[in-house]
Structure formats: structure tokens, C-alpha cells
């Protein structure tokens, strides 16, 4: 069984007046250790999907299993939240304490971990996100990228199997985005943590194991980055920005110039020169 199994899930917001559900008939498997990227424009239902994985919402129809635990069963809620950590968009609105180490400790404190063990976990988690030495800092003194990495550390300290990042880079400058993406990739590759990364920047999907494109509450495509990026026209139709290198390659191909599948500028350079 996959780490995350989503079977025929619909979701309709209770106080929503529109008839269209936020999510319609979602079927998805995410394997342990995978780096999955969900892309979609505003209102595509990608954030709703993220909240379903963490039991902040439960499906209106269908079932979600997180390492075999059904999210519809209330008894599983806290177990699942420990297994699936969540990082949100706004770095300011998810840090609880006025000192970095207290914030990272917040999750383990809630789980009832003994205090000497919390100490170890906090220091380890901060080291993993490259924020060792910032233990006593106040969050408002940090840059956006640093805050977001502290938020990731706060999740890691709970020792989850999977991290769901809901547009963690949307409010950051390019430098912060780079820091956060490097951290997430490191955690996935070196520490074997499953990552579900939600974004509207297509560039961030380049290194994924699985890319899921969402539009209007439905899964439009899923597959490897290369198979997805070949669908340039369809992606443009759903208002997604295609990386420049991919677009250039597509135009060259149309001009009958032989060119392999391109994901990044480096690959394009290699292919052309």
C-alpha cells in the first residue's frame, strides 16, 4: 500500500454557495520517499487537497488513507497529524513562540515528548534545515526564507513520515525560495522524508518523482515532469507559467529542430551547444 492513498474523493465547502465542489473525484497514490509536486493556478483546489491530507478537512465523499489510517475515522486524527506535517504559505502566521527553539519544540511538546528528548529533536531539526545556531532568535528578526525553514524544522521535530508544503515559497523572494527548495530537496533525498509540494511555480516541479496538475478541482494530468512539460499548450490553457527553457524547446521542436525533452536551462544549453 502506498503511503498516501486517495480514492474517489470529493470535497464541498459547507458554507460555499457555488455548486461546484472544491475537489471532484480525486484519485492519487503517493509512495513513501517520493517527491510529489502538485501544481495548479488559484482556485484549482490544491490547498484544499493539502488540508485533506492532514485531516484539517475530511472528504465529503471517498476515502483517504495515510499509511493505512483512514482520515474519516476521528480516532486517527492525531496519529495522522503526527505522520503528515504541514507547512503553510505565510511564514509569519505559523510560528507560535517568540523564540525559534520554543517554536520548533511546539509540536513535540504537544505530542507529550519528554523534555530532554525535545531538546535533542529541536537541535537536530534546526541542523537539518541549516538553522543551527538560531535557537535563541526571535522569529520577527529572521528573513522570510529563514522563517519558512524554522517552520519546516518545527514539523520535522515531530518526526513525520511525510511533509506537505502548501505554497511555502509563494510569499518569498528568489533567495528565500531557493533556500526553502534546497532544504526540502535535501530532506527528501538525504533523510528519506516523503514530500508533497504544492506550488504554482512550474520550475519547482522539475526534480519531482511525480507531478500532478490540477485545474478546477480535478486532476488534469499526472506523471513524470518530462511527460507533463510536453503538454505546453494545455498547461498554458489552465494559466500556468511554463519555465522559459521548456517553452523555447517546444518552439524549436515545432520548427522541426530535433531536441530532447528539456526541463531546465542547463539541459537546454547542453542540447543546443
Amino acid at each position: 500500500m502506498s503511503l498516501i492513498e486517495i480514492n474517489g474523493v470529493d470535497f464541498l465547502y459547507q458554507n460555499d454557495n457555488s455548486d461546484r465542489p472544491a475537489l471532484q473525484n480525486i484519485n492519487l497514490q503517493i509512495e513513501a520517499g517520493d517527491f510529489a509536486v502538485i501544481i495548479g493556478s488559484n482556485g484549482s483546489g490544491k490547498s484544499t487537497l493539502a488540508k485533506l491530507l492532514n485531516v484539517l478537512l475530511t472528504p465529503s465523499k471517498g476515502e483517504i488513507f495515510v499509511s493505512g489510517l483512514n482520515t474519516n475515522n476521528r480516532d486517527n486524527t492525531w496519529k495522522i497529524r503526527q505522520k503528515v506535517g504541514m507547512v503553510f504559505q505565510n511564514p509569519d502566521n505559523q510560528l507560535v513562540a517568540s523564540m525559534v527553539e520554543d517554536d520548533v519544540a511546539f509540536g513535540p511538546e504537544n505530542l507529550g515528548v519528554p523534555s530532554s528528548e525535545i531538546r535533542k529533536r529541536v537541535d537536530k531539526a534546526l541542523e537539518m534545515v541549516g538553522m543551527a545556531g538560531f535557537q535563541k532568535f526571535a522569529p520577527h528578526k529572521l528573513s522570510g526564507g529563514q522563517k519558512q525553514r524554522v517552520a519546516i524544522a518545527g514539523v520535522i521535530a515531530m518526526e513525520p513520515e511525510c511533509i506537505v508544503l502548501d505554497e511555502p515559497t509563494a510569499m518569498l523572494d528568489p533567495q528565500g525560495r531557493k533556500e526553502v527548495m534546497e532544504t526540502v530537496e535535501y530532506l527528501n533525498r538525504e533523510k528519506g522524508i516523503t514530500v508533497v509540494h504544492i506550488t504554482h511555480f512550474m520550475e519547482e516541479a522539475v526534480d519531482a518523482d511525480q507531478v500532478i496538475v490540477m485545474n478546477q478541482g480535478k486532476i488534469l494530468h499526472k506523471g513524470s515532469p518530462k511527460s507533463i512539460f510536453r503538454l505546453v499548450e494545455q498547461l498554458k490553457d489552465v494559466n500556468l507559467d511554463i519555465p522559459v527553457a521548456v517553452e523555447v524547446a517546444e518552439y524549436l521542436r515545432r520548427e522541426k529542430i530535433e531536441i530532447p525533452d528539456i526541463l531546465s536551462i542547463d539541459e537546454l544549453v547542453d542540447a543546443l551547444c
Binding site: 488540508k51 492532514n54 484539517l56 492525531w78 497529524r81 503526527q82 506535517g85 504541514m86 503553510f88 505565510n90 502566521n93 505559523q94 507560535v96 527553539e101 520554543d102 519544540a105 511546539f106 509540536g107 513535540p108 511538546e109 504537544n110 505530542l111 507529550g112 515528548v113 519528554p114 523534555s115 525535545i118 531538546r119 529541536v122 518545527g154 514539523v155 515531530m158
Partner: peptide, 21 residues
């Protein structure tokens, strides 16, 4: 937002919480 973030980090009131310090 903060309430959501706290909930997703397993906050469920003071019961059973431990402390770093």
C-alpha cells in the same frame, strides 16, 4: 491561519503537553 497551523501541529489544549524548558 495560526489556529490552523497549531492544529496541524497536534495542539489540543494544555492536557498532556510537555515543555522544552
Amino acid at each position: 491561519d495560526l489556529a490552523l497551523a497549531m492544529e496541524s501541529r497536534c495542539y489540543r489544549g494544555g492536557e498532556g503537553r510537555t515543555r522544552l524548558h
